[in-house]
Every structure is written in structure tokens, then in C-alpha cells.
């Protein structure tokens, strides 16, 4: 072993350090470039008309997106969180658990267009209904379900065993332990799972094409829930921002379709980024409060 041996080692070390650093930074640079481009293009074409909640504007699609994601989060939380609790806390080792876990994993890798077709068959064709938001939300919740299940399961599994032992030691039942100790302690991580699921919901298009429909007709003075133009009626067709981008770019029904699509993308981007930031901040606050600092 001579000096040149060590020099070679050091050189290889330096090269690899640069390589890894490049990898890390390229993700950041790509994101900034991408967001910058979309925002720049979008803002250039954004007009006051587009911001309105009318047929010409994107406001209705914006509202549909929020409402649909909210509904699908509710549905997937109702199914996914209990499933995760079951897998982590109640299930004994055995075949049943293996099957449940396999089902969850398979579900998570289904292509969204296939889930969309499934949603179309089950929620539209079989119920003899028109395209509607409820069908869209249920379809998207199928995509969110496995994510929430596994996040909840992981969140509970990583909690120290001492929480369970102490709670049982104080005379708590299993349900009391889950409700009062484990779920609150796992809350920040479940919250993160909800954010990730929401992100998926905001961006979803394929699963909604045949379920939520490609049109929207909202009248903001119509608050009769049964009416097809009431904003809060989930049984009306409800085009989201992503679907609108898709429609604009493929059907080109309007002269300035490209510009509208760019503006629409920018709005979607702002929505996703701000939602993610707010949720992150909330989860950080909760974490901090519970961590005692």
C-alpha cells in the first residue's frame, strides 16, 4: 500500500460524494423548474374571467376538485383507517391477515384507468345513474384506501409497546387503548397519510373520466340539495380541474384552449402545493405539542 493507493481511494470518495449530491439536488432543481414553468405559463394567460365561478371561469372546477377530494377522503378514511387498526392491533398472525395484506397491496398497484372503468361499471351502469361526483369520489377512494390502510398500520406498529402495556396496566380495554392512546399518538402520521391521499385525489384524472363526468353546471344561487345544479349536491356531474385540462387539450372546443389549460394547471398547482404546506405545518404543530418541546 502506497500513497497513490490512498489518493485513489480519496478520489473515488470525492467523485461519489459529488454524484450523490447531484442526484439529490437534481430532484430539487427539477421541481423548482417544473413549478416555475407551470406557474409562469399559467399566470401569463390567467384572466379575471377564468377566476370567476361561472361557465367561462375555472372556479366551478376548482370547487368540484375540493369537494370531490373531501368526499373521497371521508370514504377512504372510513374504510382504510379501521382496516389499518385491525391489521396492526387486532389481527393475529395467520392466513386471514396475509390475505388482507395481499389485497391491500394489490389494490395499491391497480392502474387508475382500470379502477375508473370499474367505478363506471359499478357506480354508474349498475346503479343506472348519470355521471356524478359521488361515483367519482367512491372511485377515487378505492385508490386512496390501500395507502391509508398501510399508513395507519405502520403508524400504529411503530408506537412503543409500552403505550399498550401501560394502558392495559391501568385497566383499559383494548378499544379504550386504541381510542385514547394509540390513535392520538399515531395521529400525525395518519394525518400525513391523509395528505398523501389527498394529493393523489387532486391529481386524479383517469379514474374520474367515466365516473365524475366531463361537465359541470353549478348555479351558485341554487341551494336545494336535490337540484342538479346545486353546488353541494353530490349527485351531479362534476368536472374537476384535471379533467378540465384533459378536455381542453384533447377536444379543443375553444379558441384559447391552450391558454386556459395552462392557467388551469397553475391553479391546480397552487392548490396542491398550498394544501401540502398547510397540512405539513399542522402536522408539525401537533407533533411539537405532543413531543413536549
Amino acid at each position: 500500500m502506497n500513497d497513490s493507493h490512498f489518493a485513489a481511494k480519496k478520489r473515488a470518495d470525492n467523485i461519489m460524494t459529488v454524484f450523490f449530491r447531484f442526484g439529490a439536488w437534481s430532484a430539487v432543481i427539477l421541481l423548482i423548474a417544473f413549478v416555475g414553468y407551470v406557474m409562469g405559463e399559467g399566470c401569463r394567460y390567467l384572466t379575471a374571467d377564468m377566476l370567476s365561478f361561472t361557465e367561462k371561469g375555472l372556479g366551478n372546477q376548482f370547487f368540484n376538485t375540493l369537494y370531490l377530494v373531501f368526499l373521497s377522503l371521508v370514504f377512504s378514511a372510513i374504510g382504510g383507517i379501521p382496516a389499518g387498526v385491525y391489521l396492526a392491533e387486532y389481527a393475529r398472525k395467520g392466513h386471514l391477515v396475509k390475505w388482507v395484506r395481499m389485497a391491500v397491496e394489490t389494490l395499491s398497484s391497480l392502474p387508475s384507468i382500470v379502477v375508473g372503468l370499474f367505478g363506471y361499471l359499478v357506480f354508474i351502469v349498475m346503479t343506472h345513474s348519470e355521471w356524478n361526483m359521488l361515483a367519482g369520489a367512491l372511485t377515487v377512494s378505492i385508490l386512496m384506501l390501500p395507502l391509508l390502510t398501510s399508513v395507519t398500520e405502520d403508524a400504529l406498529r411503530t408506537l412503543p409497546e409500552s403505550y399498550r402495556l401501560s394502558s392495559y396496566g391501568l385497566g383499559a380495554s383494548q378499544w379504550q387503548t386504541v381510542l385514547h392512546v394509540l390513535l392520538p399518538a399515531a395521529f400525525p402520521r395518519i394525518m400525513t397519510g391523509l395528505i398523501m391521499a389527498a394529493g393523489r385525489g387532486f391529481g386524479e384524472a383517469a379514474a374520474l373520466m367515466f365516473t365524475a363526468g366531463m361537465s359541470t353546471d353549478i348555479r351558485w344561487d341554487d341551494w336545494n340539495l336535490g337540484s342538479p345544479s346545486c353546488p353541494l349536491n353530490p349527485l351531479r356531474p362534476s368536472e374537476t380541474l384535471t379533467l378540465h385540462i384533459w378536455a381542453l387539450r384533447t377536444e379543443a372546443l375553444e379558441v384559447n384552449a391552450n391558454e386556459q389549460a395552462a392557467a388551469c394547471s397553475a391553479i391546480l398547482m397552487i392548490l396542491v402545493v398550498s394544501f401540502s404546506l398547510i397540512a405539513r405545518y399542522m402536522s408539525y404543530r401537533i407533533d411539537k405539542k405532543m413531543g413536549g418541546n
Binding site: 412503543p160 409500552s162 402495556l165 401501560s166 392495559y168 396496566g169 391501568l170 385497566g171 392512546v181 413531543g291
Partner: peptide
Amino acid sequence: RTRVGMVFQQPTPFP
């Protein structure tokens, strides 16, 4: 378990 309390080796406060 209510009548027979338990203190563990490591402190185990809840969060």
C-alpha cells in the same frame, strides 16, 4: 388490572 397497578422498568408516559 385496575386494582393491581404497574410501574415499568423504563418510564412509560403517554404522549
